[in-house]
């Protein structure tokens, strides 16, 4: 990006203007720089420092060294799960997303008619509020009454997989809301008893999440992995994009932070730590570990990319 900067000669750049212009430049920079310093630069350093402290905001902060990190990496089971989930999403969703994106881009680039129309539709999700999207998808994938579950069940009926038990149809006829659910484990057996490996594991996770006291139902079957993986939040490069999902999930699905919160993925964890239990230090530590995690991932990936992709002519961007 900064390739062809210097069109100039031997004089050092900054000397070629009068000193008063320098001050002018600083003045121009001031508003942005002040904000940058106060809301970005200092917080980065502060957050790193904070991760070595224990601080509840009420009592004075106490220096604890690497205790927060040690705890996270050695004894915190939820954190381990969360790390794994993050990893899992990176290796599954990102490639899929790239593949589909590329396929779509190529398809739309064939000089088709009606391009405008397709673009209108395929871009629509970009402008939607993620909260609304999440809500709609929760309902879309709703365990008992979601339209997708219905499709899955229909499919199941045709292919010999278990269909919804009689009780369900009964309940729906009465139009009751889901307050009188059968025991989740019971339900699990009913629905997934015969299903092999992965699907059962998936269902099992659903059930365990429910036992965590959730009222919200997630998708059935393989779909349960999709319901929370808003793919565009999973860019592995950790750019500022990810400011949306975590708290969203916290407020929409109250399954974070508890043991067995198997859906929770990385950014989800530091929030309850920081804002529900007022453990600022731990929250900061989580943020840093995950940042480093993502950073390493990106780094490795860029390295690999250098090996796979050959750029003609020096390849500057």
């Amino acid at each position: 990006m900064t390739a062809s900067t210097s069109t100039q000669s031997s004089v050092p750049r900054w000397q070629r203007y009068k000193p008063d212009q320098q001050w002018e430049a600083y003045l121009f920079l001031l508003p942005s720089f002040a904000g940058f310093l106060i809301f970005v630069a200092i917080p980065v350093v502060a957050s790193l420092a904070l991760s070595f402290f224990e601080w509840s905001l009420l009592s004075p902060p106490e220096f604890v060294g690497i205790k927060n990190y040690k705890q996270l990496l050695s004894s915190d089971l939820v954190f381990r799960k969360v790390l794994f989930n993050t990893f899992y999403f990176i290796v599954t969703i990102v490639p899929l997303q790239l593949a589909f994106g590329l396929l779509l881009a190529v398809s739309l680039n064939q000089g088709l008619r009606g391009l405008e129309f397709y673009r209108l539709i395929y871009f629509m999700p970009v402008v939607t509020t993620i909260v609304a999207a999440a809500l709609v998808f929760q309902w879309f994938f709703n365990y008992d009454f979601g339209i997708l579950s219905a499709a899955v069940w229909e499919l199941g009926a045709k292919t010999g997989l278990p269909s919804p038990p009689a009780g369900l149809a009964e309940r729906s006829r009465l139009g009751q809301t889901g307050s009188r659910d059968p025991d989740p484990v019971e339900k699990y057996r009913l629905y997934y008893g015969h299903l092999p490996g992965r699907a059962a594991g998936c269902a099992d996770r659903t059930v365990r999440c429910r036992q965590g006291g959730r009222r919200q139902r997630l998708a059935t079957l393989p779909l349960c992995d999709l319901s929370h993986g808003q793919p565009h939040n999973l860019l592995p490069d950790g750019h500022p994009d990810d400011r949306r999902l975590p708290a969203l999930q916290r407020s929409l699905r109250h399954d974070t932070g508890r043991p067995g919160a198997s859906y929770a993925y990385h950014r989800l964890l530091y929030l309850p730590a920081a804002f529900e239990f007022s453990r600022m230090g731990k929250g900061a530590a989580v943020a840093w570990v995950l940042f480093i995690f993502i950073f390493v991932f990106t780094f490795v990936q860029t390295r690999l990319q250098r090996r796979w992709v050959h750029y003609e002519a020096g390849g500057d961007s």
């Binding site: 970005v40 957050s47 950790g238 750019h239 530091y270 943020a287 940042f291």
Partner: peptide, 12 residues
């Protein structure tokens, strides 16, 4: 700092 995700700076 473009690299740094928002959640790192959020708590401070």
């Amino acid at each position: 700092t473009l690299m740094i995700p928002f959640h790192v700076t959020m708590i401070p």
